[in-house]
């Protein structure tokens, strides 16, 4: 039998559970979490009890869960999957609900490594409080358990995750892994969030376009918008498949470096098309905070800055491209 591109029964169940949690529990509180720069503690506990995160969950299932959460609230998704992309490197220390880790790809070399200690500042991490930081510096991943300072900053989006400047002052670090593997996990994680955010924005705008009428018919039935809605749907699906490919590769123990770089580059490109287009579909209403599309647009812009941003992913993919065999594998 040749290739399959479907979720297993179990994966579908996970997806359904995550979707129900997101729609029933997160949706009513999107704006309050945004204002509070955090997710209500009882929801953090509730989500942890569902068992959809944690160490035993592979990259593929994680991608499915993140998409569902981010389709409602990307910031809350970052907060709820608190150990997030650091999980493959942390082992069982992440069992507590509310545990937060950030993984920083130090592409601009803000940090200096001297005698096993890191020094320097990173302008933004999506958290107000952390339990551990993983810094990808050069070709190694370093685990930082102490010696940081977080100063709150005002982010463009993802408020529910928090936002701070991260300063390390001679923080003792341990090299835990090869940075390439850590980067592949990080990029896949961010890309999954982007897919969710884009899907949320697209679906909301699509429904709105069926209710809003102009020139005597639903605006979705004007071809200019119908085509845009079709293109945005394709964009979301294209990005999702790229993420699934990378995540499945990671779970099979492949390095998936190229796949993960492509997943982030694709998800960022497509989500950055979807976010502003969704606002455009709502017109003036899209610009107002009465609707969530403006939030998704900001969240997408913010998400696409994680993991060294789209540039780092594209540069990585470009470095690998001349060696890449594009044939059927």
């Amino acid at each position: 039998m040749s290739f399959t591109l479907a979720l297993s029964e179990e994966e579908r169940l996970v997806q359904e559970t995550a979707r129900r949690f997101a729609e029933d529990r997160l949706l009513p509180r999107v704006r309050s979490h945004e204002r509070a720069r955090g997710v209500a503690p009882e929801l953090v506990r509730e989500f942890a009890a569902l068992g959809l995160g944690g160490v035993e969950v592979g990259a593929f299932v994680r991608a499915i869960v993140l998409e569902e959460l981010a389709a409602v609230d990307p910031g809350a998704a970052v907060a709820l999957d608190g150990a997030g992309p650091a999980i493959p490197f942390l082992g069982r220390t992440t069992a507590d609900p509310g545990f937060r880790a950030v993984v920083v790809d130090d592409v601009e070399e803000h940090f200096r490594l001297r005698d096993g200690r890191l020094d320097g500042q990173h302008p933004w991490v999506p958290a107000d409080r952390i339990d551990v930081a993983v810094i990808l510096h050069g070709d190694r991943a370093y685990l930082v358990r102490e010696g940081w300072r977080l100063d709150a900053v005002q982010p463009c989006g993802l408020e529910a995750a928090g936002a701070s400047r991260l300063a390390l002052a001679n923080a003792p670090v341990a090299a835990i892994d090869d940075a390439a593997r850590a980067r592949a996990h990080l990029r896949t994680w961010v890309a999954a969030l982007l897919v969710g955010a884009a899907r949320g924005a697209h679906r909301y705008a699509m429904r709105y376009a069926l209710e809003r009428t102009a020139f005597g018919r639903p605006i979705a039935h004007h071809q200019a918008l119908a085509f845009l809605i079709a293109d945005l749907a394709t964009a979301v699906d294209a990005a999702r498949l790229a993420v699934w490919r990378a995540a499945a590769g990671l779970d099979r123990g492949e390095s998936a470096e190229w796949e993960a770089a492509c997943a982030l580059a694709e998800a960022a490109e497509q989500a950055l098309l979807v976010g502003p287009s969704a606002v455009q579909i709502l017109g003036g209403h899209g610009f107002m905070k009465d609707h969530p599309v403006e939030k998704w647009m900001r969240d997408i812009r913010t998400l696409a800055g994680l993991a060294g941003g789209r540039d780092a992913a594209e540069v990585a993919a470009a470095a690998l491209a001349p060696e890449h065999e594009a044939g059927l594998r």
């Binding site: 591109l5 990005a239 498949l241 790229a242 470009a318 690998l320 594009a326």
Partner: peptide, 23 residues
């Protein structure tokens, strides 16, 4: 390099869309 990377990425994603429809 960037052009090669973009070509490779888009044809990979396009193939996944084809494969999904066929599946």
């Amino acid at each position: 390099r960037e052009k090669l990377a973009r070509m490779a990425r888009k044809l990979e994603v396009g193939r996944l869309l084809c494969w999904r429809a066929a599946y």
